[in-house]
Design a protein around this nucleic acid. Sequence first.
DNA 1: TTACAATTGATCCATCTGGATATATTGTGC
DNA 2: GCACAATATATCCAGATGGATCAATTGTAA
Lengths: 193, 193
Amino acid sequence: MQTDDPDAMLAQLLGSDLSEILSISYVVLANNQVTNRHIERVHDMPVQCWSALLATVSFPGLRARDLLHLFPRPQNTVSRALALLEARGLIDQRPCPQDARAKRLYPTPAGTDLLATIRQTARLRQDEVFGVLDSDERATFLALCHKIATGPRLVRSTVMPDQAKRTGMPLDAGVPDARSPRDSGDSGFSSGK
Amino acid sequence: MQTDDPDAMLAQLLGSDLSEILSISYVVLANNQVTNRHIERVHDMPVQCWSALLATVSFPGLRARDLLHLFPRPQNTVSRALALLEARGLIDQRPCPQDARAKRLYPTPAGTDLLATIRQTARLRQDEVFGVLDSDERATFLALCHKIATGPRLVRSTVMPDQAKRTGMPLDAGVPDARSPRDSGDSGFSSGK
DNA sequence: TTACAATTGATCCATCTGGATATATTGTGC
DNA sequence: GCACAATATATCCAGATGGATCAATTGTAA
């Protein structure tokens, strides 16, 4: 099937055999373009920073490793985000008495204030994105999202296991690049391997 | 409210005033950790490459700019993804007769084959993620996703406009000044982090 | 025609990302 | 106690990212 209309192409992809993954990814990608860029421009802060700030304000005293569970991202990304938040005086990282390796995170008043500002804009944005649904639909969508989010295979896949290796790739030969040092386990994110 | 259980924290965030945005973002972030890493490991290819390959196989003859509409990403990212796909012999970029600026994209047989492999795995992954829903729920979820995806404010926000400036400036109508890169259509609009 | 804005895609380059690794601490078994 | 694995976080650095810009073309209006 052929078409030249971008909207028709999008509609067709979102109705294909990969409709579910493509649809939800499209929504989040498109929203990220708007939201992340806005927060970056207005507050000079990448997305992982205000995610971390949100969590810290919501759960004062949590540890960096808890953030990995709330916002699945590489561990060093979280570490740097916290360093930035601390450098800006938005959070405090205090050594944990029970475990000297860990640090407990607490928002400063400035951090709490800034988050309140961001939260307000984010709420408006949320209503903008989900406002096309009526309130019953919104409730339904949220409930289904939660069901998906708590599914056991979302984070621990069997069809795409962590230890999968490279396939033969019989037909590349033409790329000078070729060497990639990937491998090994997933530091940080997983609780077991 | 205080808790030390990461699962309880997650549940609480996903039920907060930002529940909808946080929930859908969580699902996609978690899935990306699994899917993108897998494809990268197995096929040595970043996510934007197989997205572009999928689109090219689905709509042979499309132009790079169409990809921006299908997969909202920075324009240079798309440009590089296509260069890589071509270097690997997975697509051809042929000059467009109607418009010498543009190039039309066509999959090679190798590209079509590789996409078939990736598509199969992606389908399995999709069933893994959405399999926690019964088929009525899946249909409902998909329909609601589509409604959200086609909402006019998803891509063109009013609360987070493109021309927003640094902190301190509230969202007054801004300056509808001269040289603002307004696009009535949707060219090079994109870019986000 | 000429001039100029708009559009398509490629490229520059400062910054960011993330896999690997390092450092410090805790826990466990002997 | 000691040795060693596991855990919490920080840091290194090759390579990716993305905002800005460029060159080439097209469209448009005098």
